[in-house]
Amino acid sequence: MSMLSSSMMVWLRSFEAAARHANFTRAAAELCVSQGAISQQVKNLEGALRRPLFVRASRSLSLTPEGERLYAVAHDSFRSLDLTLSQLRASQNREEVTLSCSPSFAMVWLTPRLGNFFRTCPGTHLKIQGEFHRLDLLQLHRQGLNAAVRYDLGRYEDLEAKPFLDEWLLPVASPKFLEQHPELKTPAQLKPQWLLHDSSPWVGAGEYEEWEFWLEQAEVGIGELELGNTFNLSLLALAAAANGQGVAMGRAALVLDDLVSGRLIDIFKLSVPSVASYAFITPPDADDSVQKVEMWLQHEAREFRDSCRYHLPHLK
């Protein structure tokens, strides 16, 4: 006779949350019940199994060997259920694609091109969410996302990451800033207090990652990068540069229009290929509507590369 009664399922859910958090209070907050309810449900489970699942100390909570064995199975089972339920809910409308996209890229590169997408794929409704946290398959489905665009190093375990656009790094500043600093002719003349930083160009990147990489490739060492101003979005650093506040590390996809208009200046005409690139992130079983978005992005990326080569012929 099966032990999986309705009461047992409730007890197992409480046990799994308590074991994952190693804390009854945090488990209670997640499941929207009281701490006492979690404690009682775990006790009920231990009573039904006739063995303890936790070692309870005054300030700690740890699993017994039997508890560890049960947690491994319960965690995988609830995760699989959650993933399947999310997939079933998402599959109700296959012609609506919700795309998570890095905010700076979404605002500068993607949004101006959406008109082309709607003309090319009139039957597909594309929704954009600006965010840059790293994703896995479960997060993708929990958030109701069909795909994502990320600027990073790739390396996704349970998602497919298909690069569609390489990136180049090039220092940029406003005409006003360069007028105020006519001595700035070579990379070696940069001062650390002038530099504007994107503190997190991709998840896991260092605070000065892009500037450090560009300076290394340019064979220049200026030190004390922390003297420059730091922003949590590349777009903010570029806005500061456009307003004459310093020199930002530009990415071609984000600065080309400003370079063509003259709002920003490519100071040294020295571009460096970035170690990161833009990739289209999807689950392994992406449907036709998601593939339409990917094909459109690949097309737009090819046209953008041609435009870059025309306006920035020095790109490597």
Rank of each mutant, 00 (worst) to 15 (best):
E210R: 14
F304H: 13
L138R: 04
S274I: 02
F78D: 05
L49C: 05
E46C: 04
V272Q: 00
H314F: 13
G123E: 15
T98W: 06
S86C: 13
I265W: 03
A28G: 05
F24R: 12
I267N: 01
S58D: 14
L165K: 03
L170C: 01
L63H: 11
G144L: 02
S274W: 08
H197C: 06
V172K: 00
P122N: 09
L184D: 08
C32M: 05
D136G: 14
T25W: 00
W168A: 11
A253S: 15
S174T: 09
K191A: 15
L235G: 06
E209A: 15
L140Y: 10
L99D: 09
E294A: 01
W194Y: 08
P273D: 02
A28R: 07
A173S: 07
L169P: 01
D82I: 03
M3A: 11
K191R: 14
S80N: 12
Y156N: 10
L225N: 03
S60M: 04
P283F: 00
L83M: 09
P65K: 01
V55D: 07
K292Q: 15
T84D: 12
A252T: 14
L315C: 12
S234Q: 10
K191W: 02
S5K: 00
R263M: 09
F231K: 04
A37C: 05
P175A: 10
L137K: 07
D257G: 09
L184R: 05
G262P: 08
A22R: 15
W211Q: 05
L215S: 02
S100W: 03
L4K: 01
E216H: 14
K127Y: 07
F177E: 04
S100Q: 14
Y208C: 08
V73K: 05
N23V: 03
A248K: 07
V33N: 04
D287F: 00
F304V: 07
P182V: 13
L235D: 01
L61R: 11
V275W: 03
I128H: 08
S2Y: 11
G47N: 14
N44D: 15
L145E: 03
L110C: 07
A286Y: 01
Q180V: 02
C121G: 00
A242F: 02
V203G: 04
R89C: 05
L178T: 09
F280K: 02
S307K: 13
V172G: 00
V172I: 01
S234K: 10
P284H: 06
L236I: 05
S199P: 00
L315M: 11
V108N: 10
L45A: 05
T282M: 06
L225M: 09
A37Y: 10
R50A: 13
S77M: 08
L235N: 00
N116K: 06
P192A: 15
D166Q: 10
L85V: 11
A147H: 10
C32A: 13
S274P: 00
S60Q: 13
G204V: 11
L138G: 13
L4Q: 10
Y310D: 02
Y310C: 08
F105R: 06
R155T: 05
N243S: 06
R51Q: 15
T84S: 11
R155L: 07
R50Y: 06
E131P: 00
M1E: 14
D306H: 07
R305T: 14
Y71V: 00
P313A: 11
